[in-house]
């Protein structure tokens, strides 16, 4: 059997071609044309450009390529993806600033360590799964299970701010960090801010929702309250960052009523078990 990963890049794989993308340099900027290029060659080109000293990697013609910026440990580097970023983009990201000018598919920022991801569109399911640091800013709507099992440790406190609406299981199992939902930039104006099972299994961190939720929407492990002035003060920098990224007015956003969801216990299932 031929090892396809190292085979001569011919033919088509998953609708892409295994060819190295065209890379051009303009000073510190590397310009990559990703049109039709398989992720393996695309991401190799991104890593190559960074190794060659590029501080901005601009990728055009992105359409579904996976792992864009995944595992890259490059503080100070900016990666721009134009098009639809594929699944698991920015996975394990550690330091880079990753912009998606378009929509992002599922699993963005999966197990991310640090850096910043900015999605200038909508994002799919399982955004920020197991995220332990860094920030994700999404302009529009997000899917199911966003912020699932975000966690915090000492100075590593991940932040996710979504400008649109979210589906079920928002902040499921959340163990730390800050998860914000604004409900403003949405293609679903008629639908509720967020689905059901919000913060189900939550045992750390905090969720801020711009608007109200009904009791049935929330997991049994969360306490629901109206955000206080103190809460809003702690929320302000995150909202300002989102507003800065998407050219919005932070004061106007913060003027809306916010609901705060926090776990009632750090050990929600302490009483569920008994010794045999």
């Amino acid at each position: 059997m031929t090892d396809v990963r190292h085979a001569t890049p011919v033919g088509v794989t998953e609708g892409y071609r295994r060819i190295s993308p065209k890379v051009t340099r303009d000073g510190d900027i590397a310009l990559i044309d990703a049109t039709g290029v398989y992720y393996e060659q695309l991401n190799a080109a991104v890593r190559g450009a960074i190794a060659d000293g590029a501080t901005t990697v601009r990728i055009e013609g992105v359409n579904g390529q996976r792992y864009i910026g995944a595992g890259i440990r490059a503080p100070g580097v900016r990666i721009e993806a134009y098009g639809t970023a594929g699944n698991d983009s920015a996975m394990f990201a550690d330091g880079a600033e990753i912009h998606v000018f378009g929509n992002a598919q599922d699993g963005i920022g999966n197990t991310m360590s640090s850096g910043r991801v900015v999605v200038h569109g909508d994002a799919g399911d399982v955004l920020g799964y197991g995220m332990r640091g860094g920030r994700i800013l999404v302009k529009g709507d997000v899917g199911y299970r966003v912020g699932i099992h975000m966690k915090a440790f000492e100075k590593d406190v991940p932040v996710v701010v979504c400008g649109g609406k979210a589906r079920d299981f928002f902040g499921e199992y959340m163990a730390g960090g800050v998860l914000v939902l604004l409900g403003m930039e949405t293609q679903f104006p008629e639908q509720p801010l967020v689905g059901g099972f919000v913060g189900t299994g939550m045992h750390g961190g905090v969720i801020y929702l711009r608007g109200a939720v009904e009791a049935w929407q929330c997991g049994g492990e969360v306490g629901v309250s109206t955000a206080t002035a103190e809460d809003l003060a702690s929320l302000r920098p995150h909202v300002e960052e989102w507003a800065g990224a998407f050219d919005a007015d932070a004061d106007e956003i913060l003027a809306g009523p916010f609901t705060r969801l926090a776990p009632m216990s750090h050990r929600p299932y302490g009483k569920l078990y008994a010794s045999l």
Binding site: G64, G83, T84, G86, N103, Q105, G124, Y144, R167, D168
Partner: peptide
């Protein structure tokens, strides 16, 4: 199953959305 598959055929659809479960 992925937005990119749609865009490969129809690069700029009027609406793209994730249907509810």
């Amino acid at each position: 199953s992925e937005e990119s598959a749609i865009r490969a055929v129809m690069p700029s659809p009027e609406h793209v959305w994730a249907p509810k479960a």
